[in-house]
Simulated scan of single mutants.
Amino acid sequence: MTPTSGDDVLSFPSWPQHGAEERAGLLRALDQKGWWRDAGQEVDLFEREFADHHGAPHAIATTNGTHALELALGVMGIGPGDEVIVPAFTFISSSLAVQRMGAVPVPADVRPDTYCLDADAAAALVTPRTKAIMPVHMAGQFADMDALEKLSVATGVPVLQDAAHAHGAQWQGRRVGELGSIAAFSFQNGKLMTAGEGGALLLPDDESFHEAFLQHCCGRPPGDRVYRHLTQGSNYRMNEFSASVLRAQLKRLKDQLRIREERWAQLRTALAAIDGVVPQGRDERGDLHSHYMAMVRLPGISARRRLALVDALVERGVPAFVGFPPVYRTEGFARGPAPADAEELAKSCPVAEEIGSDCLWLHHRVLLADVTTLDRLAEVFSGLVGAL
């Protein structure tokens, strides 16, 4: 790699972003008579606003995105002995949430263009023990929801959308909450909307909403004063301060997504012109992409050189990261219920094996930069790849 000079260091918009709206919200929450949802109104208002923005009848705010997945699985009645099909290429929370419920995550291969769950691979893994199919909208690119909905109807196995990357995204004009299935979101510090931590579920009907409320509140119904614990659950409740921040973040989302769509078109073209660099593809039925990550592959790159490239990008001010390993290649996966060992699972997930070894990604804040900075980023990226 070439040495870093002052001219090589790029500057990108900071993340998280905040302003007067977040400050006002925090003070508004502070001045309430209480700072949890039973005593304030910020969580209730955020849930309504988030549900409306995504076209869902209901939302439940949670402590974080992993807990949102756990809550969704609980609402779906999934527990020990059940199987849930998950993408082999995803952040570990997708499979970890399944294992925390005592169920078995069954990794399925992903598509080489979008890096999302391959519906045919998922179909081949459905058994009488399969209780859910969990597509991940990787980097904000929708999984093939048409094929997955057909698979769900044919098998009777419901879909659970892991939409941690897909705030505001649309599939053929339909928002996440209009697709008829439970969807889980994350508001962790790097996400497209953030309160440092946090999560949410979108619920498609009254029944699932009421069950989710009970389970996220230790089994207690709204307004309970006599400790009526009507079901199993945990305390997944979001606090009022986080909700007040997220209400402000939601107001910025639409404009930020528009900018990211425009900037990714520019950056993708420039990166695709670099020999050996293959940007993540796009299914055009996903007509609004949220671009949580700018992902590329470098087929054939070694682990050492990939890490060296990421390190060199970071030295130049670029928020770069190596891609996720396949979930079954982590020690954490092996410590929970699993359908087979890593080598056996790898045989049926060749695409995830490749992407897990040659992918890297840039944080979405690069896509909020001006066009000149993105041109310079492409030049820096090309120079570093050429020096490998």
Rank of each mutant, 00 (worst) to 15 (best):
G6K: 13
L10M: 08
S11C: 10
S14D: 14
G19K: 06
W36A: 07
F46V: 09
R48Y: 02
H58F: 15
T66Y: 11
V75K: 07
I78P: 08
G79P: 13
G81A: 10
E83W: 06
A88Q: 06
A88C: 14
T90K: 05
M101T: 13
P112S: 12
P112V: 03
A119C: 06
A121M: 14
A123M: 13
T127I: 15
P128C: 03
A132Y: 09
A132V: 11
V136D: 00
V136E: 00
H137Y: 08
G140D: 10
A143Q: 06
D144H: 12
E149S: 14
L151A: 10
V153K: 12
G156P: 05
D162F: 04
A163T: 13
Q170C: 10
Q170D: 01
Q172A: 11
Q172S: 10
R174Y: 09
G177F: 10
E178L: 10
G180L: 00
A183Q: 08
A183M: 07
F185L: 04
Q188I: 00
Q188R: 03
G190A: 10
S208D: 07
L214T: 04
G223K: 10
Y227D: 12
N235Y: 03
N235W: 11
S244M: 06
Q249D: 03
L253C: 11
K254I: 06
R258E: 13
A265K: 09
A272D: 01
A272R: 03
A273Y: 06
D275L: 02
Q280L: 08
D283F: 03
E284Q: 11
D287K: 07
P299S: 08
R304V: 11
V310T: 07
F321W: 06
F333A: 01
A334L: 11
A340P: 01
A342M: 00
A342P: 01
L345I: 01
A346P: 00
A346R: 00
E354W: 03
D358Y: 12
T373L: 01
T373N: 08
